[in-house]
């Protein structure tokens, strides 16, 4: 691939400004794999030509599509398993202890991508209800991209997607077949509200949360954006709230607004003593 430095720097700056994602030169391969299909679809001769058009003409539609393609993360149902175990075995018992058994739980999946994470959380809650737990929950799922939010709301997944991480018993219980795809049942879909949110912009209108999933997103942010975003998430978290991050991420050395939970990888508790700096 022969993308000029000017084009690369331009697209990297635009992507960072719009999504917070830091595109270092070693991520150059993303340009090829993610933008190749987009360039073909839009009738450009090459990724190079598409980037040049975006830069020279400042074509807003092309730019938005580029940012969208580069900032969408691959995901699957019950990714990493541990976060959902943490919800069941640690978070909910702690929340009930703090707020009273059966108290309403507000959860936020920030950067939910194609929706597998909020649906996995909804299934986790359903399984807990089936086991007799008094779960009353509200799930808000947000993403930067309108394209993935559309897919989230439709709740339609390919046969390939429903076989990665989803136990067959859950497929039987929560999905129905539609053509060659599988659709999440209405009951589960009704439990999630999908909204467009850019983590770099205001999100305090979402309200206060007990649980925030923000996994494998901040990993692409620079140190400053990471700290600011985490502290703004902390400001939207109740004092007894929890944050779940990806396996390779940590709040350590970034902010003390959250503290790691021993023996629970990726699980952080809101530091009740932390106050947002004025």
């Amino acid at each position: 691939m022969t993308i000029s430095t000017v084009d690369f720097d331009f697209v990297a700056r635009e992507v960072k400004e719009r999504s917070g994602l830091v595109l270092t030169p070693d991520k150059g391969y993303l340009l090829d794999t993610r933008l190749g299909p987009l360039a073909r679809k839009d009738g450009f001769a090459s990724v190079e030509e598409m980037l040049r058009t975006a830069r020279v003409r400042r074509d807003e539609r092309v730019l938005a599509a580029i940012v969208d393609a580069l900032s969408t993360n691959e995901t699957f149902f019950f990714r990493d398993k541990i976060p959902f175990e943490s919800v069941r075995e640690h978070i909910v018992p702690k929340l009930f202890a703090a707020k009273g058994k059966g108290a309403r739980i507000r959860a936020w999946c920030a950067a939910c991508s194609t929706g597998q994470e909020p649906y996995s959380l909804a299934m986790t809650f359903e399984e807990m209800r089936a086991a007799g737990q008094p779960i009353e929950a509200e799930i808000i799922a947000t993403d930067l991209s309108d394209r993935v939010l559309e897919k989230c709301r439709a709740g339609l997944y390919s046969q390939f997607e429903v076989q990665r991480g989803l136990p067959i018993t859950h497929l039987m219980k929560y999905f129905s077949k539609q053509g060659e795809s599988w659709r999440v049942n209405d009951r589960l879909r009704a439990q999630i509200e999908f909204r467009r949110v850019n983590l770099l912009e205001q999100f305090n209108t979402l309200g206060m949360f007990d649980i925030v999933f923000c996994r494998n997103v901040l990993i692409y942010f620079d140190a400053d954006a990471k700290k600011r975003t985490l502290e703004r998430i902390a400001a939207q978290s109740h004092p007894h709230g929890f944050l779940l991050m990806g396996g390779a991420e940590s709040t350590l050395g970034v902010t003390d607004a959250f503290q790691p939970t021993p023996d629970r990888r990726g699980l952080y508790a809101r530091n009740a003593a932390w106050r947002k700096a004025a």
């Binding site: 699957f76 046969q159 390939f160 076989q163 990665r164 991480g165 136990p167 067959i168 018993t169 497929l171 039987m172 129905s176 077949k177």
Partner: peptide
């Protein structure tokens, strides 16, 4: 769903729908 249910009732533990790949088998 009919085939999947029949298999699970007959004592299957999991169910893969072809075509499959290494990721699916592993999962």
């Amino acid at each position: 769903l009919e085939h999947i249910s029949e298999a699970m009732l007959a004592g299957a533990n999991e169910y893969v729908m072809k075509p499959f790949d290494g990721d699916i088998i592993q999962a």
